[in-house]
Nucleic acid binder design. Structure first.
Length: 258
DNA sequence: ATGGCTACTCCTAGTAGA
């Protein structure tokens, strides 16, 4: 069994005790982290390695930052889009091979600040699609883990009528995500829970949103077709969102029989 | 949305997240 997770920790240093507690409890083979919010030199490598993990990290100064944390040493680590000038991608995309699967930790821009940020979000999604086309075949063992900052369908947000057109649930974002997935990617959560609503991975810190389950499903594990038949389970672990001083996101994991 | 967030930083105020 091969257990793969994704978690936007909203600062790996602020969330170190949560991360350690969760790794011990869930024992994943791989966890992709987003928003580590730290430079490489300040990543808590020793604390994570002492739990039996290896770390590949691509950091930023106090913002962004992605990592692949794995029991097997991640091989062929690649940061950002190869041969493409994109200043933030070096803090938003890291890839490595684990157990023969090309794994990506992705942090898609939020895009809610202003028009420029929104366009950069769309551009980033188009670049991801181009990157897949240039470097992979849909027949490869491919996995994209991350905070995509997009809720794909109405059942992925707590109030689709209210939120329609807002950031993370805007038609142009949903369209860009569909275009990305149309390359040949499948949403593990929807494969296993096709009709479920109210299953979210993010809740606002304000408004008592978690308590009222007013959230959005923004974090995803997308896989290529050859992995679909190996998928055994997909689960959103809401528990860490209820711990003291939590990340605003909670982990999602999937189990494969490889 | 009905309550009043939480990270970060050339750090006590501004920026960003979603």
């Amino acid at each position: 069994m091969f257990k793969v997770a994704t978690w936007n920790v909203n600062s790996v240093r602020a969330r170190l005790e949560h991360l350690k507690r969760w790794l011990k409890k869930q024992n994943p083979d791989v966890v992709c982290l987003q928003e580590t919010k730290t430079l490489d030199k300040d990543f808590p490598y020793l604390e994570i390695e002492s739990l039996g993990y290896h770390v590949a990290h691509a950091g930023g100064p106090g913002r962004n930052g992605v990592a692949i944390v794995a029991k097997e040493p991640p091989k062929d680590i690649q940061i950002g889009f190869p041969a493409l000038e994109d200043k933030e991608a070096k803090e938003r995309l890291i890839a490595a091979t684990v157990k023969g699967v090309r794994i990506h930790s992705v942090y898609v821009p939020n895009g809610g600040r202003d028009e420029e940020a929104f366009l950069y979000k769309l551009e980033f999604l188009f670049r991801l699609r181009e990157y897949l086309e240039a470097h992979f075949s849909p027949k490869d063992l491919l996995l994209l883990d991350g905070d995509f900052n997009i809720a794909p369908e109405p059942q992925d947000v707590w109030d689709p009528e209210l939120l329609e057109g807002q950031v993370c649930f805007h038609p142009r974002e949903k369209e860009a995500l569909r275009l990305l997935l149309s390359w040949g990617l499948y949403d593990v959560y929807r494969l296993k829970h096709p009709c479920e609503s109210g299953a979210y991975t993010w809740w606002d810190y304000q408004f008592g949103a978690f308590k009222a389950n007013r959230g959005m499903r923004l974090d995803h594990i997308f896989i290529s077709l050859p992995l679909v038949s190996s998928l055994r389970e997909a689960y959103i672990d809401r528990e860490p969102r209820g711990w003291k001083r939590p990340s605003d996101h909670t982990p999602l994991w999937a189990v494969f029989e490889l």
